[in-house]
């Protein structure tokens, strides 16, 4: 049941992505409305899949699950990104960000399907771990926020380039103001940083529960710490020296690439190896 729901929601995300991308080319509000409805419908189905009875392919998430699977994390991340975007869009009216978020969500859902085939389980010590549950949740929310901040930063660079070059392109009229992109991007970075902090802390607890090591040395952990440090520095620079605009956008992009490195680390780590479970995110 859960698998069917996830498949349908993926289809809704694909259709939503197509609607938003079409809007970039053909600026009719109908496409935006269609995109929003499709993403929202996809999100509802997706949320339903989390509480639907588990089946052979996708275990339900939550405490007491037989095993966390990498696919679930990506699935959760995709849902969190869509939720974050819909909230952002509701507050700021940012359909242009939808053109980034919807394809991103689809891209994230693909690993969700790929990873499940390897079906790696966590170490048995973590089956009922509260720390791991919080860790996965915080990691998904943090990554979703930073993914949105990353998208907005790219948008900022494109938009700023058009203003500076004084040659606005076709898409220019549909871009929000630089100030809005900058502020929204910063807010998301702060939220992302907070969740990332929680994810690292709880991850380290989970790691200790399973193997006794608080911070194992592995690519995933290394990249996550680097990304966290970069976002910490970025927030500090914003608060103290008033950094904003282009330089902040570049830092957010770098930070997100580092965080993506942590996911690559997660996916390439050997199955059921001690450090993987120790790492906490998901095996």
């Amino acid at each position: 049941m859960a698998t069917v729901l996830v498949h349908i929601s993926l289809l809704a995300y694909v259709a939503g992505a197509a609607a938003f991308l079409t809007w970039l080319v053909r600026p009719s509000k109908r496409w935006v409305r269609a995109g929003r409805i499709l993403l929202f419908a996809g999100l509802l189905l997706h949320a339903a899949s989390f509480v639907a009875p588990a089946d052979a392919n996708l275990a339900a998430i939550g405490l007491g699950a037989e095993g966390w699977k990498g696919g679930q994390l990506f699935s959760l991340l995709a849902a969190a990104t869509v939720l974050g975007y819909l909230l952002l869009d509701w507050k700021y009216d940012l359909p242009v960000a939808g053109a980034f978020v919807a394809p991103f969500t689809v891209a994230v859902m693909v690993p969700a399907h790929l990873v499940k085939s390897t079906a790696r389980a966590v170490s048995p010590q973590l089956y009922h771990s509260v720390a791991l549950f919080l860790h996965v949740g915080a990691a998904a929310l943090g990554t979703a926020a930073l993914a949105l901040a990353f998208g907005l930063s790219l948008l900022y660079l494109v938009s700023e380039r058009q203003v500076k070059s004084k040659r606005p392109g076709r898409i220019f009229a549909r871009l929000p103001s630089l100030d809005l992109i900058d502020k929204a991007g910063y807010q998301l970075s702060v939220w992302g940083f907070v969740f990332l902090s929680v994810a690292i802390a709880t991850g380290s607890l989970a790691s200790r529960e399973s193997t006794g090591t608080t911070l194992p040395f592995a690519p995933k952990q290394g990249f996550a710490i680097l990304a966290w440090a970069l976002f910490a520095a970025l927030i500090q620079a914003r608060l103290v020296a008033g950094w904003r605009g282009r330089r902040v956008a570049l830092l957010v992009i770098t930070g997100f690439v580092l965080l993506a490195g942590a996911y690559v680390g997660l996916l390439t780590a050997p199955a059921l190896h001690g450090t993987v479970a120790l790492g906490g995110i998901a095996p």
């Binding site: 203003v163 009229a173 871009l175 929000p176 103001s177 630089l178 100030d179 809005l180």
Partner: peptide, 19 residues
């Protein structure tokens, strides 16, 4: 769509930059 006088272009750009 789009402003066609110099002063309204200036205002539109100000909005684009500063919200």
């Amino acid at each position: 769509r789009g402003a066609v006088s110099v002063s309204s272009i200036a205002v539109q750009l100000a909005h684009k930059l500063l919200g």
